[in-house]
Design a protein around this nucleic acid. Sequence first.
DNA 1: GCTTTACCTCAAGTATACTTGAGGTGCTAG
DNA 2: CTAGCACCTCAAGTATACTTGAGGTAAAGC
Lengths: 137, 137
Amino acid sequence: MKTYTIAQTAAKFNLSIPTLRYYEAIGLLPNVARNGKNRAYSQTNFDRLAAICCFKNTGMTLKDLQTLFQYEDQDHDLNDVIDLLRTHCQRIDDQLVLLRDNQRHIRRKLQYYTDIRDAQINHQPHPDWQDYPLSRF
Amino acid sequence: MKTYTIAQTAAKFNLSIPTLRYYEAIGLLPNVARNGKNRAYSQTNFDRLAAICCFKNTGMTLKDLQTLFQYEDQDHDLNDVIDLLRTHCQRIDDQLVLLRDNQRHIRRKLQYYTDIRDAQINHQPHPDWQDYPLSRF
DNA sequence: GCTTTACCTCAAGTATACTTGAGGTGCTAG
DNA sequence: CTAGCACCTCAAGTATACTTGAGGTAAAGC
């Protein structure tokens, strides 16, 4: 089966080489084969790495990821795994709502400052923050 | 003008009391009035805190927030403020896309494990990961 | 043969964002 | 009058997630 060097793997997942070694050291990424002393990453390792990146990007801590993988690997009670995933999915929903809401505030601010700048350039009156209802963004 | 104690302010923004003092110490939350020795937070402070929470929740570091507020406060070149806001808005868009994409992977996994559990309960055949195309989630 | 390149281990260091602890003040209720 | 509560300052400690440094190996190109 084809394997990849640590540099190739790091590039593929947009992680640093020390980060890959770190994940292995803390047990997040187990069973990395060796080619002599050098690591040789397999498709199985890639799958795990993809999962790590996916959960990490959605705000899960490495500790929680360790718990999740422990549950998955050790043929633990499936209900626990399902609960963990369901909870995390809900947390992502919350994040999405919060993110969109906060983005509206930022868009409003951006529009306001843009209008101030344009007003200065065109010698127009200074815009009024009252005219920027959040509902417009 | 009405003011609020540190405890009331902390509760309002869902921050800890030491965090409020910390934000003040690093200059993120300036001009907090005192009632004797005790802090007395005003609406102006609340507005700044709302902005801090908004940007922090969307992944901006406190350092970048300091830069942003410095720009805003010191009547700095507006283009710099606008650039910063625009860049951050774009980063939120990227986050939204990534978050939704990763959520689909997690939903798929969740469905898979749920089906495994149900199959076990009902003595049905084990589901096949091949039958869970990402496009379905 | 020598140098460069890519990797290795292990221990220690770093950045970010807080939190905790020690020691103290000032008001109010019993 | 003393107990408790809410606040204070300042320095040091903590958690998470890595990164850096020192010292070394092993194969490939010149």
